[in-house]
Design a protein around this nucleic acid. Sequence first.
DNA 1: CCCTGATTCGC
DNA 2: GCGAATCAGG
Length: 176
Amino acid sequence: MSWTDERIDLLQSMWLQGMSASRIAKELANGLTRNAVIGKVYRLGLSGRAKTPSATVAAHSHPRPQHKSTPRPSAPRPSSPMVQGNTALAMQPMASAAPAPAPNKEVVVAMAEPVTIMDLRESMCRWPIGDPTASEFRFCGAKKIPGVGPYCACHAGVAYQPQLDRRRQRPVQKTG
DNA sequence: CCCTGATTCGC
DNA sequence: GCGAATCAGG
Protein backbone atom coordinates (compact mmCIF):
# COMPACT_ATOMS: atom_id res chain seq x y z
CA MET A 1 0.00 0.00 0.00
CA SER A 2 1.37 3.34 -0.96
CA TRP A 3 0.18 6.79 -0.22
CA THR A 4 -2.19 7.46 -3.05
CA ASP A 5 -3.62 10.86 -3.63
CA GLU A 6 -6.90 9.73 -2.16
CA ARG A 7 -5.34 8.45 1.01
CA ILE A 8 -3.28 11.58 1.37
CA ASP A 9 -6.37 13.68 0.92
CA LEU A 10 -8.19 11.63 3.49
CA LEU A 11 -5.25 11.86 5.80
CA GLN A 12 -5.24 15.62 5.48
CA SER A 13 -8.93 15.94 6.13
CA MET A 14 -8.73 13.72 9.17
CA TRP A 15 -5.64 15.40 10.50
CA LEU A 16 -7.12 18.83 9.99
CA GLN A 17 -10.24 17.67 11.70
CA GLY A 18 -8.22 17.19 14.80
CA MET A 19 -8.10 13.43 14.84
CA SER A 20 -5.05 12.00 16.50
CA ALA A 21 -2.49 10.16 14.48
CA SER A 22 -3.24 6.82 16.04
CA ARG A 23 -6.92 7.41 15.49
CA ILE A 24 -6.34 8.15 11.84
CA ALA A 25 -4.12 5.13 11.52
CA LYS A 26 -6.88 2.95 12.88
CA GLU A 27 -9.48 4.58 10.72
CA LEU A 28 -7.48 4.00 7.59
CA ALA A 29 -7.04 0.46 8.77
CA ASN A 30 -4.52 -0.15 6.06
CA GLY A 31 -2.14 -1.68 8.49
CA LEU A 32 -0.66 1.72 9.03
CA THR A 33 0.68 2.73 12.36
CA ARG A 34 0.51 6.10 13.94
CA ASN A 35 4.15 6.50 13.08
CA ALA A 36 3.37 6.07 9.43
CA VAL A 37 0.62 8.64 9.68
CA ILE A 38 2.73 11.08 11.58
CA GLY A 39 5.62 10.53 9.24
CA LYS A 40 3.45 11.25 6.26
CA VAL A 41 1.98 14.27 7.95
CA TYR A 42 5.42 15.49 8.72
CA ARG A 43 6.54 14.98 5.15
CA LEU A 44 3.50 16.73 3.86
CA GLY A 45 4.36 19.66 6.02
CA LEU A 46 1.19 19.46 8.02
CA SER A 47 3.05 18.96 11.25
CA GLY A 48 2.27 21.51 13.86
CA ARG A 49 -1.34 21.82 12.86
CA ALA A 50 -3.71 24.33 14.29
CA LYS A 51 -0.62 26.09 15.40
CA THR A 52 -0.38 29.71 14.60
CA PRO A 53 2.87 30.16 12.73
CA SER A 54 2.89 33.75 13.72
CA ALA A 55 6.47 33.70 14.81
CA THR A 56 8.84 32.47 17.47
CA VAL A 57 8.59 28.79 16.64
CA ALA A 58 10.22 28.92 13.25
CA ALA A 59 12.83 31.26 14.56
CA HIS A 60 14.29 28.72 16.94
CA SER A 61 16.25 25.77 15.71
CA HIS A 62 16.76 23.28 18.47
CA PRO A 63 19.42 20.73 17.72
CA ARG A 64 17.90 17.61 19.25
CA PRO A 65 20.59 15.42 20.78
CA GLN A 66 19.12 12.25 19.38
CA HIS A 67 22.05 10.88 17.46
CA LYS A 68 23.78 13.43 15.39
CA SER A 69 23.56 17.11 15.03
CA THR A 70 21.67 17.79 11.89
CA PRO A 71 21.96 21.24 10.43
CA ARG A 72 18.37 22.26 10.56
CA PRO A 73 18.36 25.29 8.30
CA SER A 74 14.74 26.17 8.73
CA ALA A 75 11.37 24.64 9.24
CA PRO A 76 9.58 24.17 5.94
CA ARG A 77 6.30 25.61 7.06
CA PRO A 78 5.12 28.01 4.39
CA SER A 79 1.80 28.18 6.19
CA SER A 80 0.12 28.22 2.84
CA PRO A 81 -3.55 27.52 2.19
CA MET A 82 -3.24 23.87 1.33
CA VAL A 83 -6.93 23.65 0.76
CA GLN A 84 -7.40 24.76 -2.76
CA GLY A 85 -11.05 25.38 -3.19
CA ASN A 86 -11.80 22.02 -1.72
CA THR A 87 -14.59 22.66 0.69
CA ALA A 88 -15.33 18.99 0.90
CA LEU A 89 -12.00 18.56 2.48
CA ALA A 90 -13.45 19.56 5.79
CA MET A 91 -15.95 16.76 5.65
CA GLN A 92 -15.44 13.10 6.07
CA PRO A 93 -16.54 11.06 3.10
CA MET A 94 -17.03 8.11 5.37
CA ALA A 95 -20.17 6.18 6.12
CA SER A 96 -19.68 4.24 2.93
CA ALA A 97 -17.60 1.65 4.65
CA ALA A 98 -19.71 1.46 7.75
CA PRO A 99 -18.57 -1.54 9.76
CA ALA A 100 -22.18 -2.50 10.35
CA PRO A 101 -22.05 -4.07 13.80
CA ALA A 102 -23.27 -7.60 14.04
CA PRO A 103 -27.03 -7.72 14.56
CA ASN A 104 -26.79 -10.51 17.05
CA LYS A 105 -25.85 -9.40 20.50
CA GLU A 106 -24.66 -11.29 23.44
CA VAL A 107 -26.59 -10.90 26.60
CA VAL A 108 -25.04 -7.62 27.48
CA VAL A 109 -22.46 -5.34 26.02
CA ALA A 110 -23.40 -1.95 27.22
CA MET A 111 -20.59 -0.87 29.49
CA ALA A 112 -18.05 -0.38 26.73
CA GLU A 113 -17.62 -0.80 23.05
CA PRO A 114 -16.12 -4.08 22.05
CA VAL A 115 -12.66 -3.81 20.61
CA THR A 116 -10.93 -5.69 17.87
CA ILE A 117 -7.89 -7.72 18.63
CA MET A 118 -5.86 -4.81 17.39
CA ASP A 119 -7.17 -2.51 20.04
CA LEU A 120 -6.97 -5.10 22.75
CA ARG A 121 -4.58 -4.09 25.48
CA GLU A 122 -3.11 -6.19 28.17
CA SER A 123 -5.31 -4.42 30.64
CA MET A 124 -8.49 -5.09 28.71
CA CYS A 125 -11.11 -7.74 29.18
CA ARG A 126 -10.65 -10.57 26.75
CA TRP A 127 -14.16 -11.82 26.88
CA PRO A 128 -15.10 -12.91 23.38
CA ILE A 129 -17.95 -11.15 21.68
CA GLY A 130 -19.57 -12.85 18.76
CA ASP A 131 -18.28 -15.60 16.56
CA PRO A 132 -14.51 -15.99 16.59
CA THR A 133 -14.65 -17.07 12.96
CA ALA A 134 -16.54 -13.98 11.93
CA SER A 135 -14.67 -10.90 10.89
CA GLU A 136 -16.72 -8.90 13.31
CA PHE A 137 -15.38 -10.82 16.21
CA ARG A 138 -14.42 -8.57 19.05
CA PHE A 139 -13.46 -8.57 22.66
CA CYS A 140 -15.16 -6.92 25.57
CA GLY A 141 -12.31 -4.50 26.00
CA ALA A 142 -13.42 -3.24 29.38
CA LYS A 143 -11.00 -2.66 32.19
CA LYS A 144 -9.49 -5.90 33.29
CA ILE A 145 -9.30 -6.89 36.90
CA PRO A 146 -5.91 -8.09 38.02
CA GLY A 147 -6.04 -11.37 39.85
CA VAL A 148 -9.37 -12.73 38.76
CA GLY A 149 -8.28 -13.50 35.22
CA PRO A 150 -8.20 -11.84 31.84
CA TYR A 151 -11.68 -10.46 32.25
CA CYS A 152 -13.39 -7.38 33.49
CA ALA A 153 -15.42 -7.37 36.65
CA CYS A 154 -18.60 -8.16 34.79
CA HIS A 155 -17.26 -11.04 32.77
CA ALA A 156 -15.01 -12.36 35.46
CA GLY A 157 -18.09 -13.40 37.37
CA VAL A 158 -19.63 -14.97 34.32
CA ALA A 159 -16.46 -16.78 33.46
CA TYR A 160 -16.46 -18.67 36.68
CA GLN A 161 -20.19 -19.31 36.80
CA PRO A 162 -21.16 -20.13 33.25
CA GLN A 163 -24.04 -22.22 34.35
CA LEU A 164 -25.92 -20.50 37.04
CA ASP A 165 -28.83 -22.85 36.59
CA ARG A 166 -26.61 -25.58 37.76
CA ARG A 167 -26.37 -24.15 41.19
CA ARG A 168 -28.75 -26.83 42.33
CA GLN A 169 -25.66 -28.76 43.14
CA ARG A 170 -24.39 -26.38 45.70
CA PRO A 171 -20.63 -26.44 46.17
CA VAL A 172 -19.15 -27.75 49.31
CA GLN A 173 -19.85 -25.47 52.13
CA LYS A 174 -17.34 -25.68 54.83
CA THR A 175 -18.09 -24.57 58.26
CA GLY A 176 -15.70 -22.10 59.50
C1' DC B 1 -0.01 3.32 33.02
C1' DC B 2 -2.06 5.33 29.00
C1' DC B 3 -1.76 8.56 25.47
C1' DT B 4 -0.02 12.46 22.15
C1' DG B 5 3.10 14.49 18.27
C1' DA B 6 8.18 15.52 16.38
C1' DT B 7 12.29 14.14 14.52
C1' DT B 8 15.82 11.19 12.94
C1' DC B 9 17.48 7.10 10.69
C1' DG B 10 17.72 2.82 7.81
C1' DC B 11 15.55 0.60 3.97
C1' DG C 1 9.33 8.29 -0.02
C1' DC C 2 8.22 5.15 3.48
C1' DG C 3 7.68 3.63 8.25
C1' DA C 4 10.12 2.09 12.66
C1' DA C 5 12.56 3.75 16.35
C1' DT C 6 13.35 7.13 19.18
C1' DC C 7 12.71 11.40 21.78
C1' DA C 8 9.86 14.39 24.46
C1' DG C 9 5.90 15.76 26.66
C1' DG C 10 0.82 15.34 28.76
